[in-house]
């Protein structure tokens, strides 16, 4: 038992993160500065919000491939509601968040009511939501947002990028929910054995609906921060986000088969990928080399972690 806790996946991942930090600081002098590290928080935000909820989704044994498309759709809804329909921007933000949440809820309904496997359901809505974004926008980008709106994506709060506060808040909140609440325990129970969870009186469908809706909400919140960061709205925003988020979650040790995983793990997974992207670039590695490195780190980290866990079990 003790051995196991020492060689937990999260511990190994933490050591890998530390090793990466040390090596990259030696390789690139600009890397280990407060400015640079805080700045990375800006780039980490959108994928973090999505990955935190994706952890819940994957722990239940599901997956949500439509998050990137929900991000695109919410961004377009934000822009259209504000510019074309003439709503005040705060109201348009609420509309965009609602549409994203509804899109996630719709995923949940297809999955729970019609019993469509999550991968298939969200593959279909991946195409649908992106298509809606394209159709609604008519491929026009929307710009000219007021200055105050950029505080969210480009501003600072007590010297720390605004969106980092949001990410920190959501990390603590999701970590707390998954570890200490009945919701969290229900999430694990569903992933470990759905039938048993049902029999023991857990509201399986309700929990799942809530989680997929939350995933949609996270994607739409990410959309608003992203629009604020880049100051424009396009229908192709967030393309490929789903794979980045899933990569961070599985690197964090969440089992793709469900039942196992932590927010701490996802958090380290996110950080490791971001510091590799940033640090390698600062050390003079081009983006193609960075792709290769991230792929290798993903496979090797899980390989090492599996070896240790197998030994400690045996």
């Amino acid at each position: 038992m003790r051995m196991k806790s020492i060689f937990r996946h999260e511990t190994i991942l933490f050591l890998v993160v530390i090793a990466a930090l040390v090596i990259l600081s030696i390789q690139a002098e600009q890397f280990a500065t407060i400015d640079n590290l805080l700045n990375q928080g800006r780039f980490l935000t959108e994928v973090s919000l999505v990955a935190l909820i994706m952890t819940f989704v994957i722990v239940t044994g599901g997956i949500d491939l439509s998050v990137g498309s929900i991000l695109g759709l919410s961004a377009i809804v934000l822009g259209v509601a504000w510019k074309k329909l003439g709503l005040p921007l705060p109201l348009a933000i609420l509309v965009a968040l609602s549409v994203g949440t509804l899109a996630g809820l719709f995923n949940g309904i297809i999955i729970t009511r019609f019993k469509v496997p999550p991968l298939i359901a969200t593959l279909a809505t991946l195409a649908l939501y992106r298509g809606l974004a394209e159709g609604i926008s008519q491929a026009r980008s929307i710009r000219g947002y007021p200055e105050w709106f950029f505080v969210l994506g480009q501003g600072e709060f007590f010297g720390i990028p605004t969106q980092l506060w949001i990410v920190a808040f959501f990390t603590l909140l999701t970590g707390f929910i998954l570890t200490y609440t009945t919701w969290g325990r229900a999430t694990y129970a569903i992933g470990a054995n759905e039938t048993a969870a049902r029999f023991s009186g857990i509201a399986v469908d309700k929990t799942k609906l809530f989680i997929y809706a939350a995933s949609g909400f996270a994607a739409s919140l990410a959309a608003i921060i992203f629009v604020s960061r880049v100051s424009t709205t396009r229908s192709d925003m967030g393309m490929g986000l789903e794979l980045d988020a899933i990569t961070a979650v599985v690197l964090g040790g969440t089992s793709i088969f469900g039942g196992k995983g932590t927010i701490v793990g996802t958090f380290f997974g996110l950080i490791l990928i971001q510091i590799l992207k940033n640090g390698l670039s600062l050390a003079g590695v081009k983006s193609d080399g960075t792709y290769i490195a991230i792929g290798l780190v993903l496979i090797l980290t899980l390989l090492i972690s599996n070896l240790f866990n197998r030994n400690s079990e045996g």
Binding site: A28, Q30, D35, N36, N39, F43, F226, V230, R234, D236, M237, M239, G240, K277, N278, S281, L282, K286, S287, D288, Y291
Partner: peptide, 25 residues
């Protein structure tokens, strides 16, 4: 001079890369 770009025409990857080079100086 050196060239470094995203592998797909992606607005976000391009922004991240430029930001890294600003930090690099």
């Amino acid at each position: 001079a050196k060239t470094d770009g995203p592998s797909e025409a992606n607005i976000d990857d391009q922004i991240t890369l430029i930001d890294n080079y600003i930090t690099q100086g």
